[in-house]
Design a protein around this nucleic acid. Sequence first.
DNA 1: GTAATAAAAGACTCTTTTATCTTAAATTAA
DNA 2: TTAATTTAAGATAAAAGAGTCTTTTATTAC
Lengths: 145, 145
Amino acid sequence: MFVSKSCSYGIRSVAYLSGYPQGKYVPIRDISNDLNISYHFLTKILQMLTANNVLISSRGAGGGVALAREASSITLYDLIIAIDGDELFTGCLLRLPGCGTKTPCPVHQEWDVARGKVNHFCCHTSVTELHQHVLLLSDNTLSAP
Amino acid sequence: MFVSKSCSYGIRSVAYLSGYPQGKYVPIRDISNDLNISYHFLTKILQMLTANNVLISSRGAGGGVALAREASSITLYDLIIAIDGDELFTGCLLRLPGCGTKTPCPVHQEWDVARGKVNHFCCHTSVTELHQHVLLLSDNTLSAP
DNA sequence: GTAATAAAAGACTCTTTTATCTTAAATTAA
DNA sequence: TTAATTTAAGATAAAAGAGTCTTTTATTAC
Ligand code: SF4
Ligand code: SF4
C-alpha cells in the first residue's frame, strides 16, 4: 500500500473540489455524500489540508472548504505530504531506521531511482486529471437498486 | 509506506539467513535475538515464508529454518508477495476499488510506469545484497552501555 | 439579537496490525 | 523411553488506523 486510506480520501476530495472554481466554498457534507465517505472522518482529514494551506475553510451558512489555489497547481505530492508525511518519498523499502545517506547499502542507489519515479509521478500529477475518474467511481447511481 | 512491518522483518530475516549455506537450519530464536525482533511474532512471519516455499523448517534439536533455495535467487519480490500480497505491484495509488485496466483514468499509464520501476527493483534485488547491511543496522553492540 | 448553518474539537467505538504468552506437536540425543 | 529442543498453533493484549457520535465555536441570514 502506497498511501493510507485517509490519504486516499483526501486525494479524492480535492479532485472532487477541482470541479468547482478556486475559492468557492463547498460543504464537507456534500463531498462526503457524493464520495461516500464518512462525514466526521472526512472533516478531520480535510482539516489537515487546510492546516497545510491546500484548502481554505469557512464556518457557518454558505461556508465549507475551498481550494486555496488553482487546482492545476495542486499535486498528489502536496496531498500525500500533508496527510501521510514524507515517508513515501524518503523512506526505505526495508523500513530500517537510521538508514539512507550515511552507510547506504549496495542497492540504495537503485532504490532511490525507483522511489524517485514514484516521487516524480506524484509531483507531476495534478488533481484535475483525476476529477472525472473520481466522480465516475464514486457514482453509486450505477449500482442503485 | 511500501511494505508492512511484518514484511520488513521477513526481508531482514532472509537476508540474515543468506549468511548461511542453503539448507542449513538456523533456530528462529537466533534470528530474533540477532535482529531484535520478537521471537513469537517472527515465528508467524517465517511460517508464511515456509508456506510459500521460500524457507524450509525442521522441529526439534538441530532444527530451525533454512533457505529453501539459493539465496541469490530469492528476491524482494518473492518475500513481499508472500507476506504482503501483490498490492504493491498491482494496486492503485488512489486505492480506488474496481479500477485499472477497464476505464483507466488519464494518469493510469504513467502510474503503471512508476509502479513498474518499483516492481523491477524488487524483482532484480536479491537478499544477498542486503546481508551485510541488515547485520550492521541490527548490531546493538554499537549502542551498548 | 435569534436561529440556522457548517467547520472545529473532543470523546468514544470498531477493526487491523503488531506483539506477547501459553500450549501442543515434532524431532533429536542420550 | 525420557528429556531436551524447536517449530506450530492458539489465545490474549497492546497499539495504531479507521470510523462514529456529541459538543463547541464561528459565520450568515433574518
Ligand atoms: S541504504 Fe539500503 S536499506 Fe538503507 S535506506 Fe537505502 S536502500 Fe534502504
Ligand atoms: S486508472 Fe487511475 S485511479 Fe485507476 S488504477 Fe489506474 S491510476 Fe489508479
